[in-house]
Design a protein around this nucleic acid. Structure first.
Lengths: 341, 341
DNA sequence: CGGAATCATGAAACCGATTTCATGAAATCA
DNA sequence: TGATTTCATGAAATCGGTTTCATGATTCCG
């Protein structure tokens, strides 16, 4: 007489517990409607049979998939990995499973990903940056699914944001360099196509320089989104504008590339060149010199975005916006310029 | 007379096209069974109505979810991000959606994640490292779902691997240092609990040292899995074993922390201390000095793992194993030890 | 104590596709 | 030409749950 766990469906549990399938379903989903003793029996039988509800059947009838969609530029930026980590674990606590799609940095290309997430039945969606795709905006207007965007805080956007003001952050960085006495700037940026974060940062940088009458508003170079791009950008800057003494990098990733290129060229940081980053990556304090950078509360942002969506799911109201603070974190990569000439 | 796309289900498409629901279904899933003209009409109607099949209904009846499960230690190691990127995009090409779960580095804890993936209906599952959980092995034995593990190549494991030999890789690294003349070693490792990659690397390191009669087989330190841990480990090593001239890091991440700690202590790399990494992260060649490390074909591994699972899904046979090569990539962080005493 | 409200439960419909099985028409064959 | 496949299609069953609605048993209340 060997025991056999059986592995049947809900109907099997119902039979074994001597109740109807409806009652089994209620025992799991509306426990307060079921008599305590009956429910206990059902749960025991279900456990014994290792009953697992079929998510497809459940989703089909109840119209709830318990899936959350995420479309982000890349997983290869640790800042996004950090953000998504908190986001995902918060939703996991509530029984939701997350689907993560990567779309690249140009939000004009996110349509297919958003459509896929919605087709898959995502009950809420997280994006990064402002939506810049008319078709996605159409989707947004039609769907009941709550969306939140993060890592930026677009004004008057169709999609509410749990992010921060990129312009303000870059302004703090630029003003720090100006305050140190720098007059000749350049910026290492990412592509601005479909990327409001880059545009906001560039705009803020230019605004600061123009207001201060410093040089460099037009010295914004972009060679891509990876570390090597940062190196190439630095090379271009120093070749074309050798008087540059301060560089604003739109990602710590660029700063790593820039550091390497500086070493190759014998440029000393911060003595010859001040460099400032963005994101405060894990390695920022470990670089030589430790990188002055803008700390972005990625973990908190992920958590807040999850909470905003969770609340929206419950209340049926649009997600609550939230603008977080960034912190200019001073380390060793910025200093007053050497007195030239 | 305004146009209205309608957005109905398959039944609506059927009615509008003047055919039965069965035919509509076939037009999408078994197109060769449907008359060309009829199929064209169906497709046109479907497009006009923006028909989207309900994945829940489809999954319920067809028992196919078109979902792939992934359980990996963390997204915060870019090497895993790279691996998963290729994996995911390959499956996306075939119409599969990927669910990614993070489980930490201890594979004794992956049970819940694996169960969740299976409960969600994953048709194939990717893991990292050897399975070290009896419950997971039970699941493996019972399920028909193909599994593949990666980033290691466990012998006689229940789950086939598309990975590489961690011991061999570390052996190459250690022998390189031995060949340079080093005699006093230490290793910065991760936790070995539930982590065969770490154990394999440590074992290989010890084997090499013992065979060569060099010091350091017992100098394996671990302070965690992040960059700061690398720094703390280096501090411990130099405090306890100041004669150390060569350090094998089990991750480039540790090497970054070690570099920083070296600078703090005035230890020059490679003059005073040779450091070797593992993974060949994007920043490895950009560090100062550029990091000698073991290059792991993460992208290719992700792709191969996807192909292996795809083939298994088609053939119903177990996935094909594959052991990939790693490459010791020589850069500037290793050199002959200075002649002491 | 009688009628209304509440409660716990079950029967049956339902979610939206896929799949089986049946059928009539067309094609093939002897 | 009559019998036999083959082909394209539709009717209906089905996947495994959830939800609606009905019902009998209790409790509540005037």
């Amino acid at each position: 007489m060997q025991e056999r766990p059986k592995r049947g469906g809900l109907a099997a549990v119902a039979k074994a517990a001597g109740v109807s399938p409806a009652t089994v379903s209620r025992a799991f989903n509306l426990p307060e409607l079921v008599n305590d003793a009956v429910r206990a029996r059902i749960l025991a039988v279900a456990a014994e049979q290792q009953y697992r509800p079929d998510p497809a059947a459940r989703a089909l009838r109840s119209r709830r998939t318990h899936m959350i969609g995420v479309a982000l530029p890349t997983l290869d930026y640790s800042i996004f990995a950090r953000l998504i980590n908190r986001f995902q674990s918060r939703f996991a606590e509530e029984g939701y499973t997350t689907i993560i799609l990567t779309t690249g940095f140009d939000n004009r290309n996110i349509h297919d990903s958003v459509q896929l997430l919605l087709d898959r039945g995502a009950e809420a969606v997280l994006l990064v940056g402002a939506v810049e795709d008319a078709k996605v905006n159409e989707i947004l207007a039609e769907t009941q699914v709550p969306f939140v965007t993060t890592y930026s805080f677009p004004k008057g956007s169709a999609v509410p944001a749990v992010g921060f003001d990129n312009g303000e952050a870059t302004q703090a960085a630029t003003e720090h360099l100006l305050a140190l006495g720098h007059r000749h700037f350049a910026m290492i940026a990412g592509l601005t196509d479909g990327n409001d974060r880059q545009r906001d940062r560039i705009a803020a940088y230019r605004r600061c320089l123009e207001r201060a009458g410093a040089t460099g508003a037009d010295r914004v170079v972009c060679h891509g989104f990876d570390m090597a791009a940062g190196g190439r950008a630095l090379a271009e800057i120093m070749d074309h504008y050798p008087d540059t003494t301060a560089i604003v990098c739109n990602t710590d990733i660029f700063a790593v590339g820039a550091y390497a290129e500086c070493r190759k060229r014998g440029i000393r940081v911060p003595d010859d060149l001040s460099i400032i980053g963005f994101d405060d990556a894990e390695y920022a304090p470990l670089l030589d010199p430790p990188l002055t950078t803008i700390a972005v509360p990625a973990d908190e942002m992920g958590l807040c975005a999850a909470e905003a969506l969770l609340a929206a799911l419950k209340s049926k109201a649009p997600p609550q916006e939230r603008c977080m603070d960034t912190t200019l974190t001073l380390r060793g990569s910025t200093a007053a310029p050497r007195h030239k000439s």
